[in-house]
């Protein structure tokens, strides 16, 4: 979830045991993400069915035979769809977080370093946007922009950017007051030079730590929107949309239409979460 406030919660320096655990978390997270990335990049080359190819002979076929994970109500192969969907989900999540980081950092730097009127106006605008729970805002913006992968990148980035802006602004305001920034000013460096050489590099630690965690949240948002029909829609392959299509099957006891995409989603998000948690832990140790 988009809890960008917890960067400061990383806590005081701790023992070596914690550092080892942080490393374990980072390794486990990277391994899970590597596994998913490998599966969705290589896997589609190995399956017989295309992601939107209909097998007229099999609708809601259980796993086995020609369809290792069965088919959905339209007779499309679940395995092929799950693997293809991963490319879209991972791609959109990473792209949207990258965009949010760039947007948010720029705004946060501007507000934090300039201060005064610029800061006041920017912060009030962000206040308004942050007066909506993130997912509600995402719903509204998605309805406004319409579905499709490109628009979803924009939706998730726009919803996330204010939090990054706030995070960077707070950090900049702290760093701005540190002695080494004053030292740079005393040395006669220009405002922009000080900003670029001293303030920016020392203000990005929380962003670096939060971004992976945020990728997980972005995937969940994306899938949630598609689940509600506001994101990518069937027949396109996307995990949330696939789960949505299988909702009715669950009550009837047909697990295979919705459980596999959910598991893939879970493993990917967990990968990001473990990575992010590990980075937070380590940042807490280093700082």
């Amino acid at each position: 979830m988009a809890d960008l406030t917890t960067a400061a919660d990383a806590g005081p320096p701790r023992a070596a045991a914690d550092r080892r655990f942080a490393t374990t978390l980072i390794r486990a997270g990277s391994a899970l993400l590597g596994l998913v990335a490998f599966a969705v990049l290589v896997g589609p080359l190995l399956v017989r069915w295309g992601p939107e190819e209909i097998d007229p002979a099999a609708s809601l076929a259980p796993p086995g035979g020609a369809h290792p994970l069965g088919t959905d109500v339209n007779g499309m192969d679940i395995l092929s769809r799950v693997l293809h969907a991963g490319r879209l989900d991972l791609g959109v999540a990473i792209a949207s977080v990258a965009l949010a980081v760039v947007l948010g950092t720029a705004l946060g730097l501007l507000a934090g370093y300039r201060g005064g009127r610029v800061d006041d106006v920017l912060m009030r605008v962000l206040d308004v946007f942050q007066a909506f729970p993130a997912f509600i805002l995402a719903l509204a913006v998605a309805a406004l922009l319409g579905g499709g992968a490109g628009n979803l990148v924009l939706v998730v980035a726009l919803v996330n950017a204010p939090a990054y802006a706030r995070l960077v602004r707070a950090e900049v305001r702290t760093v701005r007051e540190l002695p080494f920034v004053e030292a740079s000013r005393t040395a006669g460096a220009s405002g922009l030079g000080t900003l670029w050489r001293h303030v920016l590099p020392n203000s990005l630690t929380p962003v670096r730590v939060i971004a992976p965690l945020n990728c997980g949240w972005a995937m969940l948002t994306l899938a949630g929107l598609s689940f509600l029909g506001l994101g990518v829609t069937v027949p396109a392959a996307e995990w949330g949309a696939m789960i949505s299509l299988g909702t009715g099957d669950v009550v009837a006891g047909r697990w295979w239409t919705s459980v596999p995409p959910g598991l893939f989603l879970l493993v990917s998000v967990l990968g990001f979460s473990l990575l992010g948690e590990g980075l937070q832990e380590r940042a807490g140790v280093v700082r």
């Binding site: 997980g216 949630g224 919705s258």
Partner: peptide, 12 residues
């Protein structure tokens, strides 16, 4: 728990 999509967890 935090990594579970709530709509999917509900279904499961």
């Amino acid at each position: 728990g935090n990594s579970l999509p709530e709509f999917w967890l509900g279904l499961v």
